[in-house]
Design a protein around this nucleic acid. Structure first.
Lengths: 214, 214
DNA sequence: CGGGCGGTCAACCATTCGGTTGATGCGCCG
DNA sequence: CGGCGCATCAACCGAATGGTTGACCGCCCG
């Protein structure tokens, strides 16, 4: 089997070094290059594709400090290089993170606390065009399929966004040119859908589910 | 100078491998052992101290999934081994994380996105009994020193963190084993310091100023 | 075309929250 | 020692929020 050449994308030098070290123990995988953020990854891919396209797989972290985040980077990469598999390797396994990654076109979703062998196997699977999910992630996706959480309407999301800025009901009503009564009605619906009973909890849940940007 | 023997504590095999690889490039530092959580770290330290105590420094991550978290682990280590320096190496630099680590007795606070040389230097400083702070962390602490007026006390930060999870005053009072009256008093102070007049606005400002993790 | 859903509004009441005053104890610092 | 900041608690009141019921309109979909 041909050697698999991967591009590491992670803002932590420590993590990149760890993946390098980990892959150096496997003869069938090698690290082609590293990027600290999404922009850098795209530049590397463009350069590589210009000289023959030697990269088989991108290993992408989701959280990256100041530059382009992993979800956006994944989306861009899939736009420019639809056939290049992107395997997400990150710390968190919240619904919001997983869904965002899948929607962005990730070929798989692995967690950093996985043992080296699992990560290597996932890399090989993803490079072969298959989907590679960590067990915890797979379980979470199944759970969502069974009882999909009710989603907020556009108007309700608008309200939650204003909520999160700390505005009172009165302030929200003025901003949206509706009465306070309407604001309260919306809030009741939002609380029902999110399974909470006050505004701060609604904000917390909305952030968790990435209904609003945190 | 004698070789520095460090204990790595991090729940991610990838990160441990990265630190190992990073330190293997330095002749004056070596990895004595690894632990995936606080319990394991304590067991290793007890065993090592029984046979002569060969460990000079603990490198501690703060976020560790299911077992003992890094702050608790640091506190326990400092209780049992007061002279053993613990250098925190983590991802986040919020006031809450930093203060908790410092109060637990950490000798330093470095961020994982730091270059290898900085981490090595910090390790050597910490082992020599000095304090090692990442520039971002140092800046944040200095900022707190310069104008302590608008900065929250540790207790108040604790309150804000619970606020942000959506808890009511009553729930917070139970969690912290204080009366609702005390919670309200704290909140009034928090509102004054942050220049707001309700809890959701307080959360918004606290996130903005990175008093709590967003 | 009828019903469901989303958005709007009103009135009402209970609960929570915000704000004040005042008080105690503790530890630290000059 | 005296003061100051921090944390704790109590009682009280007005305002904001939560929760309920009921209503109207417009739109889309079957």
């Amino acid at each position: 089997m041909a050697e698999l050449r991967v591009l590491l994308v992670d803002d932590h030098p420590v993590v990149r070094a760890g993946l390098r070290a980990m892959f150096s123990g496997f003869e069938d995988v090698s690290v082609a290059d590293e990027a600290a953020n999404g922009d850098e990854a795209l530049r590397i891919l463009e350069r590589e594709s210009a000289v023959g396209g030697k990269i088989d797989l991108v290993l992408m972290d989701l959280q990256m400090a100041p530059g382009m985040d992993g979800v956006t980077a994944t989306r861009r990469i899939k736009e420019q290089f639809p056939n290049l598999p992107v395997l997400v390797l990150t710390t968190y396994d919240t619904d919001a993170d997983i869904l965002a990654a899948v929607e962005a076109g990730a070929s798989g979703y692995m967690l950093k606390d996985a043992p080296p062998n699992s990560i290597r196997d996932a890399a090989r699977s993803a490079a072969a065009g298959q989907t590679a999910l960590a067990p915890e992630v797979a379980a979470r996706l199944m759970g969502r399929m069974r009882n999909p959480a009710p989603s907020l309407s556009a108007r309700e999301i608008e309200l939650v966004e204003l909520l999160a800025t700390g505005m009172s009901n009165r302030a929200i009503s003025r901003r949206l040119f509706i009465s306070e009564a309407t604001v309260k009605t919306h809030l009741v619906h939002i609380y029902e859908k999110l399974g909470v009973d006050n505004r701060t909890a609604a904000i917390a849940v909305a952030r968790e589910r990435r209904i609003i940007r945190s």
